[in-house]
């Protein structure tokens, strides 16, 4: 079991900020989907640092990203 970031896509798509994707230390992990206008997380790559949560919640006060517990698939 480990923590990964999860984007609330419905909430995220109401904004047009693309800020969290600029601050993730992992490449090709927190991506932006042009069609749905929302950020999304490539979960197997997320290391769970929660930097995006700081950007989204503390700096921008938008609360679109949460850390969730996931289990590895067998």
């Amino acid at each position: 079991m480990y923590y990964v970031a999860k984007v609330d896509e419905e909430k995220c798509s109401t904004y047009n900020c693309k800020q969290c994707t600029l601050f993730c230390p992992e490449a090709n992990t927190l991506m932006f989907d042009e069609e749905k206008n929302t950020a999304w997380v490539n979960e197997p790559r997320c290391k769970g640092c929660a930097l995006c949560v700081y950007v989204c919640s503390d700096l921008l006060k938008r609360d679109c990203i949460q850390m969730v517990m996931v289990t590895a698939e067998d």
């Binding site: 693309k18 969290c20 994707t21 600029l22 601050f23 993730c24 230390p25 992992e26 490449a27 090709n28 927190l30 991506m31 932006f32 042009e34 950020a39 790559r45 290391k47 769970g48 640092c49 929660a50 930097l51």
Partner: peptide, 27 residues
């Protein structure tokens, strides 16, 4: 660089620690 997250980057998965800002700088 201001469009990070909207294209596939030339740097790939790496073994640096979670939340490492050096990894971020490299990206």
């Amino acid at each position: 660089a201001t469009k990070l997250g909207q294209f596939k980057e030339i740097v790939e998965e790496h073994p640096m620690c979670a939340g490492c800002f050096m990894a971020y700088f490299v990206r």
